[in-house]
Structures are given as structure tokens and as C-alpha cells.
């Protein structure tokens, strides 16, 4: 616990929930993002729709604990149960507003590696791969990233781009043929980073309570710049915490550090 009545993980969930706007269609994935979707639905975004790569769409989050998106509670009462192509095809059709992904490595332009540490020709560690992350990063209108803020994960340049962010910065994403999109928020256990300026380089946008700028800089592997006016991440409101506690009935996320 942070001493403020909420855990770091709960703050991350609530910060992620604020990135979902009402009426939006969002790839929500598992764990923190699915909780964020639930909080958003119960607070400011009652008409948001959650998508799952396996071929599911939901209005309400599942009533019971999920280990994976295909678990029976996620199937029951779904808004749509269909194929992967149909749900991910919504991305390519321009019907998806945002998507959440995580990653092993992220760089200053928001490119994410979940495939090969060291690159594919000089691999040091074989990671599981894209899953649907590359598709979401390439084709959702906004990409939302959730990662722990470790120096070896926040690197100057990823060794393999599984999921494209702003590539080399500037208009290189557009030049590659990706029309729009790209990461708009990177939510970590310390802070929120956002792209800033013409280069779309990730900057420090806000710091979570109890952490310092120096700490964030020390745990970022590039020369992290600060957006003018960067402040503390707004504290969870009573309504946001109440919504989260309604979903997280067993206190799974409350009891995280």
C-alpha cells in the first residue's frame, strides 16, 4: 500500500481507466486493463465496449475471476462471440478507438519488444512474441501501454520492434504506412509518460504520489524530458476507488504493493 488508501496497482488501474472515453471500443486484454475497463464503465464511460482477440466483445466486464480472455465467465453474457478475424478486423476497418498492451522493452518512441531481447539475429532471450499486440499497436487509433518502470525495460532503442510506436520519431510512423495511431500514454508504477512535440518522443507527463522526478529519470534508460506543466498524477477519487472495489471483490489488486 502507498499509505494513501490505495495500492500502486490500483492507482495504475485507475489511471488506465481515465484513458478510456465514454462510448469507445477498446481492446482490453487481461489483468490491469480489464480492471481499468470495469472502472471506466462504472464511472465516466458507461458506454465503453471491451474487445478480446479470441473473438469476444463485452459491455459489462465478466462477473467472475478470469485467468485468460477465453475463460467461461468471459463467454457468458458476451456482446458478441465470434472469430479472431472478425474482432481484429474491426481494427483494420478503423472501428477501434484504443487498445492496451504490455511489453518487455519500450523505447523513447514507444516501440515495444515482446519477441527477441537482443534482436532476432543475435537473440539473448526468446520472448513469447506478438500475440495480437503488433496488430493493436499498428491499427488502433490510440495505444495505451502498461509496464513496470525498470531501467532495463525502458531503453533508448528496442532491439526488435514487435509493436510499432512512433518508430524513429517524427513522421516515420506515417511514412511506414501506419495512418494515425501510436501510443498516447505509457502508464508505469512510477509515472505516466506521453508523446510530446513533433518527434513524438515519450516525455514525463505526471508522477505518482510518493515518487520523485529523479527516481523516474534514474529508472528510464534514455534522457527523459519533462512535459512543461508536468505534475502529480491525480489521486484516485472516492468514486473511482469504490468502483474498483466493487469489481475487485476479493481485494486482489488492493493487496498488491
Amino acid at each position: 500500500m502507498s499509505g494513501e488508501g490505495y495500492s500502486t496497482q490500483e492507482l495504475m488501474i485507475i489511471a488506465a481507466a481515465r484513458e478510456i472515453h465514454d462510448g469507445e471500443v477498446v481492446f482490453v486484454g487481461m489483468r490491469l486493463p480489464i480492471m481499468a475497463f470495469g472502472v471506466a464503465r462504472l464511472t465516466h464511460a458507461p458506454n465503453a465496449v471491451g474487445l478480446f482477440e479470441c473473438g469476444l466483445a463485452r459491455y459489462e466486464p465478466a462477473a467472475d475471476m478470469l485467468y485468460t480472455m477465453t475463460d467461461p465467465p468471459n463467454q457468458k453474457g458476451a456482446a458478441w462471440a465470434t472469430s479472431l478475424f472478425q474482432v481484429m478486423g474491426l481494427l483494420q476497418g478503423g472501428h477501434v478507438d484504443a487498445g492496451f498492451i504490455g511489453g518487455a522493452e519500450i523505447d523513447r518512441f514507444g516501440n515495444i519488444n515482446t519477441s527477441y531481447i537482443g534482436g532476432h539475429t543475435r537473440m539473448k532471450v526468446k520472448l513469447p512474441g506478438s500475440g495480437g499486440a503488433a496488430d493493436i499497436a499498428g491499427m488502433a487509433k490510440r495505444l495505451l501501454v502498461i509496464m513496470n518502470h525498470d531501467p532495463h525495460r525502458f531503453v533508448q532503442r528496442v532491439s526488435y520492434v514487435t509493436s510499432p510506436g512512433y518508430l524513429d520519431g517524427g513522421d516515420s510512423r506515417h511514412q511506414a504506412g501506419l495512418d494515425g495511431g501510436g501510443p498516447t500514454a505509457v502508464i508505469t508504477d512510477l509515472a505516466i509518460l506521453r508523446p510530446h512535440g513533433r518527434d513524438h518522443e515519450l516525455h514525463l507527463a505526471s508522477i505518482h504520489g510518493g515518487h520523485t522526478v529523479n527516481e523516474v529519470l534514474a529508472r528510464t534508460g534514455w534522457d527523459l524530458k519533462i512535459i512543461p506543466g508536468a505534475a502529480q498524477t491525480p489521486l484516485p477519487t472516492a468514486a473511482e476507488l469504490a468502483a474498483l472495489h466493487r469489481i475487485d471483490r476479493d481485494g486482489f489488486w488492493r493487496n498488491k504493493i
Binding site: 534482436g119 503488433a134 499498428g138 526488435y160 518508430l167
Partner: peptide, 13 residues
């Protein structure tokens, strides 16, 4: 023909 994986190193590997 797809728009996905443009800009990704999946195209390279």
C-alpha cells in the same frame, strides 16, 4: 493484403 505489421520487425524476421 493487410495494414497490420507495417513498421514492425516481424516483416524483417
Amino acid at each position: 493484403p493487410v495494414r497490420s505489421i507495417l513498421g514492425s520487425d516481424i516483416l524483417a524476421s
